[in-house]
């Protein structure tokens, strides 16, 4: 059964009183669950969190399902998100995505056999002037070449 660490539970307690209503704490608490649950939010984690927050499970699910940053399926240790919106595509983002999928032998959105990487295409990440770019877990990597992107991912493994 999933359970937050003591520090995680402390975080939830603080968030519940941080905003004008408890409900506003759902997003930050889901982020905390995702962080402590290997990058995704499982159905049992939702049940646990709604119990901990004392809020209806439906409210938590509603938020979980609305936003793209919450992963509803397991992801690799490195979640590689390549922007494939307009300015990035003009600068080779689709070719880069294909190169990464081939190099790490993984289909889009799936976890590689060794559990290390998931590669997904995402919408504009506000890095259009330094295209192409990718986000790996919490960090941006910009002005990429095929070589620099592969090197970055390998170094993070």
């Amino acid at each position: 059964m999933f359970k937050l660490s003591p520090a995680g539970e402390e975080f939830v307690k603080k968030e519940l009183t941080r905003y004008e209503t408890k409900r506003s704490a759902i997003i930050p608490c889901l982020f905390k669950v995702q962080e402590e649950n290997k990058g995704w939010v499982s159905p049992e984690a939702v049940t646990y969190l709604s119990g901990l927050m004392d809020l209806p499970e439906a409210w938590v699910n509603e938020v979980l399902n609305f936003y793209t940053m919450f992963n509803k399926e397991p992801v690799g240790k490195l979640h590689v998100q390549v922007c494939c919106n307009i300015s990035c595509c003009m600068n080779g983002a689709r070719e880069l995505t294909k190169h990464l999928k081939d190099t790490f032998n993984v289909k889009e959105g799936e976890v590689s056999a060794d559990g290390n990487v998931t590669i997904t295409r995402v919408e504009c990440l506000g890095s259009c002037g330094t295209a192409p770019m990718m986000q790996v877990n919490d960090n941006y990597y910009e002005n990429l070449t095929h070589e620099s992107a592969v090197k970055t991912i390998k170094e993070l493994m």
Binding site: I86, S87, C124, G126, S127, C128
Partner: peptide, 10 residues
């Protein structure tokens, strides 16, 4: 800031 092409607020 999510409008594709925009990165000034960042």
């Amino acid at each position: 800031e999510g409008e594709p092409g925009t990165f000034k607020d960042r």
